[in-house]
Write a protein that binds this DNA or RNA. Structure first.
Lengths: 202, 202
DNA sequence: TACTTTTAGGCAATAATTTGCCTATCAATA
DNA sequence: TATTGATAGGCAAATTATTGCCTAAAAGTA
């Protein structure tokens, strides 16, 4: 298929060993990693680089993962965040999930599990979708409601198409939408199945 | 403001004692309660009555609370669900929250805490905006496109109302939408201006 | 090649949404 | 009390969306 920009993960933990081990593992699996040993550093890294996914420890010395996530969300409202922690309290997990965490992993992290979660995110939210995602994610407040809703709908449809690897039958099932309706929406929203799948003949 | 229909809670647990104690307590606090001792019964009750909030145990003999919630969501995609459980596994809590649970309480339930959560939900239909946000952001992949788009639209409108501090004129300007259209959408999506602003005269 | 599967557009009936116009309520105030 | 401003609902016309039925092109397969 097409050449994709690799996923860039921001890994945050105060434990250098954890950072080292997991970042090595992720890089071996073709995932770019930027590490940060504190939430302050992490926020700075977010300014410098276009992070796709945040993976952060819940418990850190200075500010905890929840506070960091809240800060991070200010600049990137919908960025996927994966939390991990050992001995987490129920209220911590609930707080993390309420913040819209994508996943909450128990420490010690199973590298394969982490990879799997990231892989699922790549498929569903990112990859070739980054443009579309930005289209609705970043669509500023001043845009009309209708436009913003349509941008989101476009993003959802594009996500489903990429996830289904272009098989429209699966998309119809996933979105539970009439085939005729989907075709009309795609045409109206300017969604091209071929372009999404990186068709080189486009 | 206007007279509201009292909140109707569906309380689900296989333990009759729990049902009795908590339903009594809630009723003492002016909250209508329908109880169900199994998920099958609960689903039936949902057909019979217009439930506002579901409060369910995570662990039950036949089907567990997650499965029940999934079933319930089929007919009421955005209904607020509060889970409770003792000795919950991290993965259970995460699964519950991913389903869009409003809250996850530990057993034994502190009645005041439950009351507080329900009170917060009464104030704003889906709880705080963050919950509404969850309703669209976290609305799992398996939900129909239509529902997910509506959830997002609801979130946008609620955000705009809160941002404008309830002044509909400002909302109309911000969303660039026809006044009549906004009113219709609010009514259809179950958005209450008063509730969003925490109107205490309800 | 012939057959099947997948995808997609044309068209029309039906359903839903949008919107302007009118009215009504409520609160604040002259 | 009368008036004004903000909010909402009823209604109906105009517009748009949905969907089933039909056809057809393209890709894959026997």
């Amino acid at each position: 298929m097409e050449v994709k920009k690799p996923t860039l993960v921001l890994l945050v933990d105060d434990d250098i060993d954890v950072l080292g081990a997991h970042s090595r593992f992720l890089r071996l699996n073709d995932i770019d990693v930027i590490v940060a040993e504190s939430s302050a550093t992490a926020l700075q890294r977010m300014q410098e680089s276009d992070i796709d996914i945040i993976v952060t420890d819940l418990r850190m010395p200075e500010s905890n993962g929840i506070e960091f996530a809240q800060q991070a969300r200010l600049s990137r409202p919908l960025i996927p965040i994966i939390f991990f922690s050992g001995y987490a309290q129920v209220r911590d997990i609930v707080a993390a999930m309420k913040l819209g965490a994508v996943e909450f992993l128990e420490k010690p992290i199973d590298p394969d599990e982490l990879l799997e979660v990231i892989g699922a995110l790549q498929k569903s939210h990112y990859g070739s979708l980054s443009n579309s995602r930005k289209a609705f994610d970043g669509l500023a407040d001043e845009y009309p409601l209708r436009m913003r809703v349509l941008a989101y709908e476009k993003y959802l449809i594009e996500s489903a198409i990429v996830q289904s690897n272009g098989q429209i039958g699966l998309v119809l099932e996933a979105l539970q939408v009439n085939r005729r309706t989907l075709n009309d929406k795609m045409s109206k929203l300017g969604i091209s199945r071929d372009a999404l799948l990186g068709d080189t003949n486009q």
